[in-house]
Design a protein around this nucleic acid. Structure first.
Length: 467
DNA sequence: ACGATCACGTA
DNA sequence: AACGTACGTGATCGTG
């Protein structure tokens, strides 16, 4: 629609945006006919636009060959254990009722815990608990705010049970509504499989996105959430095979910065978070404590995303001055990272966009905005996009090469999912060994960087066993 | 029925 | 645009 307006000066008679799953057949036929017609008319103008932007090879060598692979993955789908999901849904339902009753009892009244507005009224007005951060329409009740309320209660000698109950209610209702129930509604009753849509033109950085259902945000962090992941299974007589890039974004950072310390660490396959901890805390590597390593890991990501001392202090629950020291120490020890950030921002300011290794462009007009906050947002996006986008380029190229290798071998395995740094395949057990080897080779060699790429391969009878 | 808001799941 | 990037989805609640 936008391309027709911009390049052809034509106003499409049908709406191209919005969800199409409830569209009447006649309307769909009309719309698709017009889309096909406009697509043909757009070939030459789009080609010219891509040539001027220097992104023809991104289109020809990455996005175009990737499209049929994604279509194939969507058509294949992934099997789910329907009875396990139903069991989970029922279990969640009972647990929600139980915790709901507890919360209502502790509050001394019935109310809708899922309504932030009602929740605020109960916690901050009726019970008189100390409110923290504000939102547009009142006080925040998100998990961070509630954790702080609980901590405050404990230090005042109060029982924080109601807060714990609310957080448990949130986790359970989230899992039931967004995952078990939504997934059950989207299982093809004939095949027992779910078929996502991989969106190729949504994310500004070049990542894919997944929708209806989103299979790129299936829970993995909590024990209860992982029960949902356990319901994703191989088809009959098959095994799931998963390969994920180890710390790909930090390796891309090492590539761009050419930082000698980062490059050495990755070339010698050392523990990068331990190295960072050693440098920012000024201790020998073998003296790094688990807590220091965990905080260093947070600092590594903070740098990648351009986090401020304010944000880092909140995340690590340390004073702002201390967070500031960590960041300063980081840049002192890894000066080439500081240089990289500076020159990327300059490039963005001068050209209005940044590029990934493949030449993919992300416009960042915000970097020249007069508003401080908008400008800062643009600078963070400008620094992060080449990193995130290059990682996206690499896994896309790996998918294209992998598909080609599989074809040569007579399709002994099929790709099911891509989750940004992970590929999930379905393979006959007798092919496990050869496919694991192939997957690692193709992914690790998809694109040569100054720092080596590392891939971990796992297999299992469900998607959780491999996490 | 729709959109804004809040919240929260993933990399 | 909101003191960390990139996404998608669901419930609530106000508006139409």
């Amino acid at each position: 629609g936008d391309m027709a307006r911009n390049l052809l000066n034509v106003e499409p008679s049908h709406e191209f945006e919005g969800r199409k799953d409830t569209e009447p057949d006649e309307h769909r036929a009309q719309r698709l006919t017009e889309e096909a017609d406009l697509a043909l008319l757009l070939v030459e103008p789009a080609r010219s636009a891509m040539r001027s932007a220097g992104v023809e090879s991104v289109f020809d060598d990455i996005e175009l060959p990737l499209a049929p692979i994604l279509a194939e993955m969507e058509r294949t789908g992934i099997a789910v254990n329907v009875s396990a999901l139903k069991g989970l849904s029922d279990g969640f339902d009972q647990a929600i009722r139980d915790v709901e009753a507890v919360v209502h009892s502790l509050a001394g009244e019935k109310f809708n815990i899922a309504s932030p507005k009602q929740l605020q009224a109960v916690l901050f007005d009726k019970m008189g608990l100390k409110a923290g951060r504000k939102t547009k329409s009142g006080y925040s009740t998100d998990s961070t705010a509630l954790e702080q309320v609980a901590a405050e209660m404990v230090s005042n000698g109060q029982d924080p049970a109601i807060v714990a109950g609310i957080l448990e209610f949130r986790e359970l209702t989230k899992l039931k509504a967004t995952y078990t129930d939504a997934l059950l509604n989207l299982v093809d009753p004939n095949t027992g499989r779910v078929h996502t849509t991989f969106n190729q033109t949504v994310a500004a950085t070049g990542r894919l996105s997944s929708s209806d259902p989103n299979l790129q945000n299936i829970p993995v962090r909590t024990g209860i959430g992982r029960k949902i992941r356990r319901a994703f299974i191989p088809g009959p007589g098959k095994v799931l095979l998963s390969a994920d890039y180890s710390q790909i974004e930090l390796r891309v950072l090492a590539h761009y910065t050419e930082d000698p310390e980062l490059l050495r660490a990755f070339r010698e396959d050392e523990d990068i978070h331990r190295i960072t901890a050693s440098r920012i805390f000024g201790v020998p590597e073998d003296a790094v404590t688990p807590d220091q390593r965990r905080d260093a890991k947070t600092v590594n990501f903070a740098v990648l995303y351009g986090q401020s001392d304010f944000g880092l202090s909140a995340q690590l629950k340390i004073p702002r001055a201390e967070a500031k020291r960590y960041i300063e120490q980081y840049f002192e020890r890894f000066p080439s990272v500081k240089d990289y950030i500076a020159r990327t921002v300059v490039e963005a300011r001068e050209t209005g966009f940044v590029r990934t290794l493949s030449g993919r462009r992300r416009p960042v007009p915000e970097v020249n905005d007069r508003n401080f906050n908008i400008r800062n947002f643009g600078e963070r996006a400008a620094v992060n996009s080449p990193i995130q986008g290059t990682a996206a380029d690499i896994i896309k190229v790996a998918m294209i090469r992998l598909r080609e290798e599989l074809r040569k071998l007579g399709d002994p395995a099929v790709m099911l999912l891509q989750v940004h740094d992970e590929l999930v395949l379905e393979v006959p057990p007798e092919q496990l060994e050869s496919m694991s080897h192939l997957l690692r080779e193709v992914m690790e060699n998809a694109w040569p960087l100054n720092a080596p790429l590392k891939v971990d391969v796992k297999h299992g009878e469900n998607w959780d066993e491999m996490a």
